[in-house]
């Protein structure tokens, strides 16, 4: 298949995904399960990484801003901006592309190669709608919360790093994070997150759903899904930044 054919097949897949669920009570059950699998179970890793990256950004900024003409509150300011504008929406999404994306591809791919998807379709169930729609809705609902949490923990991590290393004072840091706060940046980050969340689930599901063969092919599809999801996220990040902030 050429790349253009893949894009066409991906778009056709989306038409199958976004249909009315065949049974609403089954859909709600799946949605809550996916909120747990894809959302709550990603909390730990996101919190851990956000906290430490926030700390590292603050330390790096402090170490590189040693001129007496540059005020210390810029450390807090830079940490806040980096976390809100880039780290939380983009970096967290790339991490989740690895964690959640590979999980989606391998679980759907395994269902494909073990004929579980065939079993659904023989029953007359739209397998894409049944398997993918609850995942898409779950991440669209949960990832903005996850990203806001990452922003908060990143900024907190920066402050903790400052206390532990004595590189800057709490007052300076707090002044920095309060400086020129623009609520639109949060909006911008959430818009990006929603787009990236959609890409993570649908691109990974596409790769899983079209697997044929065995375990090796499922593994390959997983890797391919993570690579393509990351590429699409990085490209979309560029265009969205240009569109929303340019």
């Amino acid at each position: 298949m050429t790349n253009l054919e893949h894009i066409g097949a991906y778009v056709l897949m989306l038409f199958q995904v976004f249909r009315k669920p065949q049974k609403w009570d089954v859909f709600w059950t799946s949605l809550f399960k996916e909120l747990d699998d894809l959302g709550l179970k990603s909390l730990g890793i996101t919190a851990f990484i956000a906290f430490f990256v926030g700390g590292v950004v603050a330390i790096q900024t402090a170490l590189n801003v040693d001129s007496p003409f540059i005020p210390k509150y810029l450390i807090g300011f830079a940490t806040k901006r980096s976390m809100i504008l880039e780290f939380a929406p983009t970096f967290v999404s790339v991490i989740l592309a690895g964690k959640v994306g590979s999980y989606i591809t391998s679980s759907i791919g395994t269902m494909r190669v073990t004929e579980q998807i065939d079993a659904l379709e023989i029953m007359g169930i739209n397998s894409l709608n049944y398997l993918v729609l609850p995942k898409v809705i779950a991440v669209l609902l949960f990832y903005p919360i996850l990203v806001i949490l990452a922003m908060f923990l990143g900024i907190l991590g920066g402050w903790v790093a400052g206390i532990l290393t004595d590189l800057f004072f709490t007052e300076d840091y707090i002044m920095g994070i309060q400086l020129e706060f623009n609520p639109y940046f949060i909006q911008y980050a959430i818009i990006k997150t929603v787009v990236f969340a959609f890409v993570i689930v649908t691109v990974s599901a596409y790769h899983g759903h079209k697997v044929s063969g065995g375990a090796l092919e499922v593994g390959r599809a997983s890797t391919k899904a993570v690579v393509w999801t990351s590429v699409v996220i990085i490209l979309l990040n560029y265009f969205l930044t240009q569109m929303l902030l340019g």
Partner: peptide, 20 residues
């Protein structure tokens, strides 16, 4: 329309295809 007939079909797969 196929869906209606599919409801009348049962299938046992080679590997059983039970949902894990």
């Amino acid at each position: 329309e196929k869906r209606q007939i599919r409801k009348e079909i049962g299938m046992v797969f080679q590997g059983s295809a039970l949902y894990d």
